[in-house]
């Protein structure tokens, strides 16, 4: 009986150590509490690491060419630059500009139209989309179960080496939730560690007066769905949020994106129609397209002088967080993929 007690005691200790690597999100004390509830699946260092490997693994696409990171590069705050619309396997073009991935723990609904309500379900959308990864979670699970690197990694985290759809998706969710961008010059100014120059200061005042209702600090979005006056693209015919809610009042509404790291997340808008920040500001100044669901804030446009536009851009550049973009723990996990 004593031997059995020792045996179960050892198991308890091993499980205890394995689960003892839980991590917490680090963010400024002035920020609101995250919406993401990790009570059922606490953030864990090993799981985040394995989620990162999956995020960078092209095996997640049908022809092993496209990984999540292909359209969500860490060096661009986890989005895709140069292309208006994200492209997937066989150079197929999607219908939307890939959104930047950071601070997801503060977002209730994900994607431009809020189609996804939980981060663990997020990856299924690009995995299944024929113009993105063109695969299925079933196909991925079959591939990964033949990969000794993953078998070994799963064994070290779970009590067995079984690779299931649930585990793969939750690991990807762990990595994405761990991505917190909160170390820009703006953040350092707010915590008293730095100062805006005069131009940035004028830009911040303009921002607070004209932009902050939708791009609410400190996350620089209220993550609501709004029609910001973009003329609908006759080719894409994208009705936005209405596709999900089937409510006409949601027609042409898209999620307000965060302005954090905006210097590196071009092109802009859900369809990537603007390449430069000045084009975006010009849109609000004189290109608002009127429709039934246009946000009332924009009915008269938002007008800036030429100098004000320059000042506003100067402020927006203070939202760049290079420590986030170039953090080694967010980059390609070479050690994992170099394993024999």
């Amino acid at each position: 009986m004593r031997l059995i007690a020792i045996f179960f005691g050892l198991i308890f200790l091993l499980v205890g150590f394995r689960n003892n690597q839980s991590i917490e999100l680090i963010f400024p004390s002035s920020w609101p509490e995250p919406i993401y509830n990790d009570d059922n699946y606490p953030l864990n260092e090993q799981k985040v690491e394995l989620g990162r490997a999956l995020f960078f693994d092209p095996q997640l696409s049908s022809d092993n060419t496209i990984s999540c990171a292909s359209c969500h590069s860490p060096y661009n705050a986890f989005t895709h630059v140069d292309h208006q619309l994200s492209h997937g396997i066989n150079d197929r073009i999607g219908t939307r500009n890939s959104p930047a991935i950071f601070n997801l723990a503060w977002q209730k609904d994900l994607m431009w139209d809020g189609a996804i309500h939980h981060v663990d379900a997020q990856a299924l959308a690009p995995i299944n989309h024929p113009d993105e990864m063109g695969s299925s979670i079933n196909e991925i699970v079959q591939k990964l179960n033949k990969d000794v690197r993953y078998k070994k990694a799963f064994k070290s985290i779970y009590s067995d080496d079984l690779i299931t759809g649930e585990r793969v998706l939750k690991l990807l969710g762990q990595f994405m939730i761990s991505l917190v961008s909160c170390d820009s010059k703006y953040d350092r100014v707010m915590s008293g560690k730095d100062k805006f120059d005069e131009q940035e200061k004028r830009g911040y005042e303009l921002f607070c007066k004209n932009c902050s209702e939708c791009h609410k600090e400190p996350l620089f979005s209220d993550y609501s769905f709004r029609n910001n006056g973009l003329e609908p693209d006759p080719q894409l015919k994208d009705i936005g949020r209405m596709k999900i809610t089937q409510n006409r009042m949601d027609s042409l509404k898209f999620k307000v994106p965060s302005l954090r790291n905006i210097e590196f997340t071009f092109p802009y808008m859900h369809d990537g129609r603007y390449k430069k920040l000045t084009e975006v500001i010009d849109h609000y100044d004189r290109k608002i397209h009127f429709s039934n669901t246009l946000d009332p804030i924009l009915e008269k446009g938002i007008h800036f002088t030429t100098n004000e536009k320059v000042d506003l851009v100067a402020f927006l550049l203070t939202l760049t967080d290079k420590n986030f973009m170039f953090a080694p723990e967010h980059g390609y996990p070479k050690d994992f993929f170099d394993q024999k």
Binding site: A115, H117, L124, A125, I127
Partner: peptide, 11 residues
């Protein structure tokens, strides 16, 4: 979701 009973274009 490997059983094909989870929507991918929405949750």
């Amino acid at each position: 979701p490997i059983h094909g009973m989870y929507w991918s274009w929405q949750s």
